[in-house]
């Protein structure tokens, strides 16, 4: 799918959330965002925030690494965690972030630069109930982004 503006990226994020929200009652939903600087990862997270009914402005977590936003809407309540792995190099850094403790049914986690930890994800999420949606964002022509996604249990 191609988006032509940050707004369209946000709208697509809402749509992808709707497609995958089933099971949020007994699972933690994780959006693993892959993409270079400036491909719209934070915009995508803003879209997820909107889908969850979060009023607070979703801002880049690059500096503080994790930002959290509690949410409550008609269907569900939980905490939306927005994580930035831009600065993470060694896989064990992921464990240090304490991500396992954030994984609870009903919570939603968006991880920017998720590709950086792919090799230890199985270890991190071992025996936890999660649904992971991999989202790839790419630069195309000026202003255009190619966004593709796939989910696995």
């Amino acid at each position: 799918m191609i988006t032509y503006s940050p707004r369209e990226t946000k709208e697509l994020a809402q749509k992808i959330f709707q497609e995958n929200k089933r099971g949020l009652k007994n699972k933690c939903l994780i959006f693993a965002l892959q993409g270079e600087l400036g491909t719209g990862k934070t915009q995508f997270a803003k879209g997820l925030g909107r889908a969850l009914g979060i009023k607070k402005i979703i801002v880049s977590p690059s500096f503080t690494l994790i930002r959290e936003y509690p949410f409550k809407n008609r269907e569900t309540k939980g905490i939306f965690y927005h994580i930035d792995a831009w600065r993470i190099e060694a896989p064990e850094e992921w464990l240090a972030l304490g991500i396992r403790e954030l994984v609870k049914p009903g919570n939603v986690i968006a991880i920017e630069w998720a590709e950086k930890g792919r090799e230890i994800w199985d270890k991190i999420f071992d025996k936890l109930s999660v649904k992971i949606v991999w989202v790839k964002l790419e630069h195309k022509k000026r202003g255009e982004r190619k966004i593709s996604w796939s989910s696995k249990k």
């Binding site: 500096f63 600065r87 064990e92 850094e93 240090a96 972030l97």
Partner: peptide
């Protein structure tokens, strides 16, 4: 400590 990584690294920070 963080310079080689271009930013703060969590477990190093702690």
């Amino acid at each position: 400590i963080h310079r080689p990584w271009g930013g703060v690294v969590p477990n190093l920070a702690k």
